[in-house]
Write a protein that binds this DNA or RNA. Structure first.
Lengths: 242, 242
DNA sequence: TTCGATGTCGAACACTGTTCTAGCAGGCAG
DNA sequence: CTGCCTGCTAGAACAGTGTTCGACATCGAA
């Protein structure tokens, strides 16, 4: 033993931390998506940079590009991953309306489980492998229930649009939960106070209904929304099929 | 005349292009929002940088910060500006349902008129001066029509959420219209072909309804959506008022 | 005339997504 | 066993971003 192996290498002898070749734990798309989802949940979309994800994997940003092509590609994969987390039940024709509501609730839950994921979904067409599987199974429910093909397809599209819209402003601007618990209706109460203090001559209606801004049970609202939607769809089905 | 005034100044005598003081045409919030909206419509949200807006105003990016505080502040102003472009009719109690649909159509038009503005609206609470005015007038219609206060407030919220959701995926990812005319249903046809080519054993429903992916009249879809929504709301009103 | 207040803006900072390029490691052909 | 070639890693650099700083010019009032 000429030298002690554990000694830090002399600074002039530039030895790379981990040499350029293979690593013990090779990168995969899956591992990268795992890490990205972890960063996303913890720090939100604004905190999700390629460098940050690479750091989580103990490597450099450039290495990710071999596996995911671009940041947009990575976001595609995250999107499809989250879709894959949603289970869609097998069709029970008599219960198609209730089943569709279940699908909607599951979708909302998946979105709320991962911070800012709705912002990722925004311009993305759900055409990944899991998204196709997902659409297939939802269509199965609708068609088994007797919804005509065209109405089933636009219904599926509209449903996801509507849920996206709802969850987007439910999650707010994706603003980080400031410190401790997010004061969920603290904001609502502030809004109520603000609206109530408006000049009554210019905003008579706003001032009079100001109290309604205070309490906002999002679950209740969501149920109202999907009830409106599903029942409306059902009556369309009845109308179209005579 | 000792020197010719029009000569370019000698390079060592660092004379600022426009001296640091006031300019002939002083900046205003309004002028900045005008310029920003112009850039937005022309180049989309991704092209909307502070430097780009400043350039439009023939100045530097730093100058904007005196008037708008931050880019987010500027986006707030843009958002409120677009809301101000929408006219809301005076209430006609008998026609409240049709009036609400008109409001919805106007909102969609305003969103489609300005590229990517829906992406700006995403995390933003409509609480600017014009947004308040807007809410006031829509509430007037609903309450005049006999919609109970609570249902009116959540109805207004849900309506904007729903329209946001719809227009978000109507405008796609805000991807720029590539060159000439945007092949609006070229994409839809490609989607149809792709879906139709899926393995039939794993995607029986998708393959069978593939044709429905081809033709997509967004206007028709939108009418379906707001009809679902407004009629559903109306039946709720009847139910709640006995 | 002097002096703040108001407003302008070049330069710099920290950060982003992405590309370039050098290089290592394992599998395969000779 | 030797050599090479492909798959993969990763540092350095580039152009772009939002934002801040500080020096500076101009205007209205004292």
């Amino acid at each position: 033993m000429a030298t002690t192996p554990d000694l830090p290498p002399p600074p002039w002898q530039r030895v790379p931390q981990r040499p350029g070749g293979r690593r013990r734990d090779p990168l995969t798309q899956e591992a990268i998506v795992d890490a990205a989802l972890k960063v996303l949940d913890a720090e939100g979309l604004d905190g999700l940079s390629m460098r940050r994800v690479a750091e989580e994997l103990d490597t450099g940003a450039a290495s990710l590009y071999w596996h995911v092509g671009s940041k947009d590609g990575l976001l595609d994969l995250i999107f499809d991953r989250v879709i894959s987390e949603q289970e869609v039940p097998d069709p029970e024709p008599e219960r198609w309306r209730e089943q569709l509501k279940e699908v909607a609730r599951t979708m909302r839950e998946a979105i709320l489980r991962h911070r800012d994921v709705v912002r990722i979904s925004i311009g993305r067409v759900p055409m990944g492998p899991h998204a196709l599987e997902y659409s297939e199974r939802v269509l199965a429910i609708l068609r088994a229930g007797g919804v005509p093909d065209q109405l089933a397809v636009v219904g599926l599209h509209l449903l996801t649009s509507v849920i996206n819209g709802f969850t987007i402003d439910e999650t707010g601007q994706g603003g980080e939960p400031p410190e401790g618990q997010p004061p969920i209706d603290e904001i609502a109460r502030a809004a109520r106070d603000y609206v109530a203090a408006l000049p009554l001559d210019r905003f008579p209606n706003m001032v009079e209904v100001a109290d309604q801004f205070a309490f906002s049970d999002q679950n209740e609202r969501f149920e109202l929304l999907i009830d409106l939607f599903v029942e409306g769809l059902a009556s369309r089905v009845d109308a179209e099929r005579g």
